[in-house]
Design a protein around this nucleic acid. Structure first.
Lengths: 263, 263
DNA sequence: CGATTGTTTGACGGGTCTCAAACTAAGTGG
DNA sequence: CCACTTAGTTTGAGACCCGTCAAACAATCG
């Protein structure tokens, strides 16, 4: 089991967006061991009910959790992209509560629960950061319930695109930008609780309105302000760095938070 | 701030359904201070974005979190009943991520974050139990996404009724039973992402099928097996031990759907 | 007993699904 | 380099589930 810093640095950076650590805590995180693993697109790598002994960090690619109804129709309940920890919650609840699937060819790093527990016990502040990370993921799922429950297809789609743009860290103050989003329309439909056919039509509508261009593997935002307006998007629930500490503006005109990926 | 054991015993019992404690840990939980508070039906008692300094435990009644779209249509994203801790997550993320509302007249106990943190730091095992509780709540929200995203009104409603029956601890091995569910059809609609009118019609369908009778303040399950079948309900995600009220919740009637890979 | 809130029912319209087929892009083997 | 295959996208026509609007009915309460 190789223990190379550079990969865990990405994990640390993610955590530090919402938590702060002392030097020794940082070091402990950077020294976490991991096992890289490649998963092909559309392949499940964790099954519901399975007992897992490690958590998965997305190094590259995209993955998601999903449930399905009796007819086998899927509903993706959360997506994770490069830099996200997928199932930190299995540290305290090792039974997987839903299936995990790679949406595209994905490289994940498996970090043993035993090691996560160890640093958590040694540094309560780190355990708290882990807990916080789970809470933040839950906030996103909460928003998804509102999205599929109370917004029509167009609004719903715009909202999700805004979320992904912000989370991927590619949203910029400029009005137009491009970011990778390598999912098929069928997968997109499963995130939105729609059929692929209707996703296609709705995408067409947004494209013809010169709002956004969703291609096979990337999204071109043509008019961010309109997209955020259509999607009724308020990034507060993402708790991204820039608007932390109090005064989250209520009707925050959905400006994309300038996420500074110190790269 | 009174510090009387009997109320916290309910909290402890809830935690012990999924975590186990040493005697001194139990004692620390039982001695948590709290401030009782009564909230009228349909009253918000926490607003999104607000910074809170305590977590809310439901002693009696029913409460929920909700979001809303631009037109003001609500989507309830989770419900909490007697014995549930509503927002334990604010311990690590004090900014409320969604509004909290009492669905009926509700008595809550406010437990200061400072005290929750204190016992969490002193007993890492308790902190872990808190974390686990948040994870379990998140699992329920996950299931709600599937529910509103991929199930039709009838199925969706049956599923939610099953969930509430199990969580409230009133589900029994018998086929028929009654449990309190004091919500209006409009509130029920907001949980399901439907309109009140359609909720009414769907309830009628279930009633005429001799499956379940939903009255103003309670639900009479006529045929649990059919209800669970209609709702495609599998209680696994609730992670209820067999410890709840001394009675095992009804075993899942539907086998988890077969997972099929995209072929 | 009137006022208010919640439930029930009907008629109608629309957003989304289903089914089906054509089209495009990408990969595979000859 | 070309048939062939396969996965994904696009478009159309029709059906249906659910939403909207409206009004009557029932229950609760001061």
């Amino acid at each position: 089991m190789p223990s190379n810093p550079p990969e865990m640095a990405q994990f640390l950076r993610k955590l530090e967006a919402r938590s702060s650590f002392r030097p020794d805590e940082r070091k402990a995180i950077l020294q976490l061991p991991f096992e890289p693993r490649q998963v092909q697109a559309n392949r499940d790598f964790v099954t519901r009910g399975e007992r897992v002994s490690h958590s998965c960090f997305v190094l590259k690619g995209m993955a998601g959790t999903f449930g399905q109804n009796r007819e086998g129709h899927r509903q993706i309940t959360s997506v994770f992209m490069s830099g996200d920890m997928i199932d930190l919650q299995t540290v305290v609840l090792p039974e997987a509560m839903s299936n995990l699937q790679a949406l595209t060819t994905t490289t994940i790093l498996q970090i043993p629960h035993s090691d996560l527990r160890r640093v958590g016990h040694r540094f309560p502040n780190i355990a708290e950061a882990f807990w916080r990370e789970c809470v933040l993921d839950a906030a996103i799922v909460n928003e998804w319930v509102v999205n599929v429950g109370r917004r029509d297809a167009r609004t719903r789609m715009a909202h999700l695109l805004c979320e992904v743009a912000c989370r991927s860290g590619h949203a910029t103050p400029e009005n137009a930008f491009v970011f990778p989003f390598p999912v098929t329309q069928a997968q997109f439909a499963d995130m939105l609780g729609l059929t692929p056919v209707h996703v296609n039509r709705t995408l067409k509508g947004l494209r013809e309105g010169n709002v956004v261009n969703v291609a096979a593997s990337s999204v071109e935002i043509v008019d961010w302000d309109r997209l955020a307006d259509i999607g009724e998007f308020d990034a507060a629930y993402l708790q991204l760095g820039s608007l932390r500490n109090g005064k989250a503006p209520r009707a925050a005109r959905c400006a994309p938070p300038a996420v500074q990926m110190a790269s």
